[in-house]
Write a protein that binds this DNA or RNA. Structure first.
Lengths: 243, 243
DNA sequence: TCTTTTTTTGAATGATGTTCAAGATGGCGC
DNA sequence: GCGCCATCTTGAACATCATTCAAAAAAAGA
């Protein structure tokens, strides 16, 4: 008799309900005013039930970050499966990132907070491992795969670098751009152009820096646009406006 | 009679005492357990007096971040005044960053938290403006100055880019590396080598990507070491071990 | 239908950030 | 010196939430 399994399923469903409601509450009222009691009330459950799922508020935030990041990973996975020259595929990672951010404008705000020592340390080890297993590891696998292909096909020569350190460079650039976007007021001066176009542009420049073939002309805006559009059409067809 | 000024001076002194004590408390017991009452007690003042200086805990954290960042800016200012080819000077910014981090290992942990929406928004507008005026603006001025020199001397051609967008690229890379370092556990895989060496290496690669003359061979480790050492000796002589 | 187990509940608890009325201090005129 | 006034300091009281847990409700099993 599967009543135990049904229970389990219902429990997981309710967890998803809580997370979805949390996302909405945070979107509408900000992370600053987010309260556990309010979340429980909005779902018509008691706080006790909420705490059945999440050991603490920090735990919930890590879980929410993980859940959202899953979509992020799915976009990256498309790029991982895309048949194209290695350089275009790594570039497509930056495009995937831009698309993800446009669809989840709140994500990095929450993630930035969640990944701070203060919150991260206060979450349970289980939630933290879950985050790493479902997010950091898959992304690393995908990106390293592209780098490995590039090396195998002769597009890239690692020299003294490792796959991970090349990946870390692109990862850092991407994170930094997200910081830039969300460091509200701190860096308005840098926000003269669309920051995610800046990410694409700089990813391309960095690819040139790695001498990743085929090299491109960094000043050719039309080519950059064309490449971005092509990737949007070929890989993220269903997620982008048909412009 | 300057008794009013003396008061003012004493008030500012006490503020510095609070900030220094806060830094120590956070270093010793972590940001997680940092409490206003404890800070007041450790300075032998009442909480009320502490609140005379800082409107809220968040306010204090922003002030602490600003105070520490001042040293950061001073290191950058040395680079700004250093007489050297433009490319070496921009590279030296990355070196300055590494040195700063080694001397202030806690800084980015605190800054990452402080610059999150949740904390940043809760701080007073005055403290926020102070941060920008004493940190973001000076850094921007220094870096843009180097970029302007590079353009003037023909080492760099901006093309479609602006000074700010070039600066943003290096800024993002740097921030991203700090994230990488502090995303404890999240990205252990990337931490196979000293992350600040990685920052230097990738800054160099990005300089190549910008076609910033003179180009260097990215695989020449000895040259990279030599350059880092030279900058340490010429610019940060007093802050580095004489190795 | 009754008993046992599991789940849910929400008032009570506890930890902290913040306030503010009362008290202490110190300059200043006499 | 002395008392008056403005200013500063104090810390107990307050407010806000996160979290707990004993009791109630619901569900499963006999």
């Amino acid at each position: 008799m599967g009543f135990r399994e049904r229970r389990q399923r219902e429990f997981l469903d309710r967890e998803r309900v809580f997370l979805e409601a949390a996302r909405e509450l945070i979107r509408d009222e900000g992370l600053l005013g987010f309260q556990m009691a309010r979340l429980a009330e909005s779902c018509e459950y008691s706080v006790g039930t909420l705490y059945q799922h999440f050991g603490s508020k920090e735990d919930l935030l890590v879980a929410l970050t993980t859940a959202t990041a899953t979509e992020h990973v799915r976009l990256f996975a498309r790029v991982g499966n895309w048949q194209a020259p290695s350089r275009e595929r790594l570039f497509a990672i930056a495009v995937a990132d831009s698309i993800f951010v446009q669809r989840n404008p709140e994500y990095f705000r929450i993630a930035q907070y969640t990944l701070c020592e203060v919150v991260w340390r206060a979450a349970s080890p289980d939630r933290r491992s879950e985050f790493m297993a479902e997010t950091a590891e898959p992304i690393r696998t995908i990106v390293n795969g592209i780098i490995a292909d590039a090396v195998a096909s002769g597009d890239l020569s690692l020299g003294v670098l490792t796959q991970d350190s090349v990946a870390a460079g692109f990862w850092a650039l991407t994170c930094g751009v997200h910081d830039l976007v969300h460091a509200e007021g701190v860096c308005d001066a840098y926000q003269t152009e669309d920051p995610y176009r800046l990410l694409c542009r700089h990813t391309n420049l960095m690819l040139n820096g790695f001498d990743w073939k085929p090299l491109i002309d960094p000043h050719d805006e039309a080519a950059l646009d064309a490449l971005i559009h092509r990737i949007q059409n070929e890989v993220f067809h269903d997620l982008c406006d048909h412009t």
